[in-house]
Amino acid sequence: MTTMDRKGFLQQLTLLGGCTLMAPTVLLQSCRVEPRIWSNLSAKDIALLDELGETILPKTDGQPGAKEMEIGKYVVEVVTACLSPEDRDTFLYGLTSIDANSIADFGRPFEDLDEEDRYGILKALQDEAVAFNEKQQGKLEPEIHYFSLLKELVVTGYFTSKTVMTEVFDYHPVPGKYEGCVDFDVAKDKPYKG
């Protein structure tokens, strides 16, 4: 995370990393809006996760966005049940960072930003995650960047949801046959899913 070059975020991160427990008071002093600190996920986080998801996979012409696929609900469930405690901590730290980041840079939490600023924050994190992951290559126990976790959850949840599988793809759960090479027109054909 050291590649972060945006000053406000960096300051907040230092605060967070150094003193998570006493952070509320410290942060209260330094910010107008109180950043949140996550130690678990619950239904109250769905709205934020929906917006994060929508920024990663937005609604486009003819295709639903992640929010419509109830991505927030999915992420809460999977983070709670399926992630290892280490990954869950990384994920929660990530939410805390994103919130701090957003408040530092814009004075408002992520949910209240406009689309462009949301995209800006997550795109910067995406670039950071790419750089971070490159550094992990060849390491015996590679670490994962929280944004990669978030993105993986959003992508998996979105692409396993009913509407996306049945409407965005050519979904045939019982195809009846296998053909190795059918014609496929990128411009107009939907990819097969089973």
Binding site: T55, I56, L57, P58, T60, Q63, Y119, L122, K123, Q126, D127, V130, K151, V155, F159, V168, F169, F184, V186, K190, P191, K193
Partner: peptide, 23 residues
Amino acid sequence: RRPGSEQGEAMIGTELKKDLTNL
């Protein structure tokens, strides 16, 4: 041959969606 490419790893937003909904 499945939806999504290597490039998708660095994308978000409409760009990512396009990548993942195409082969």
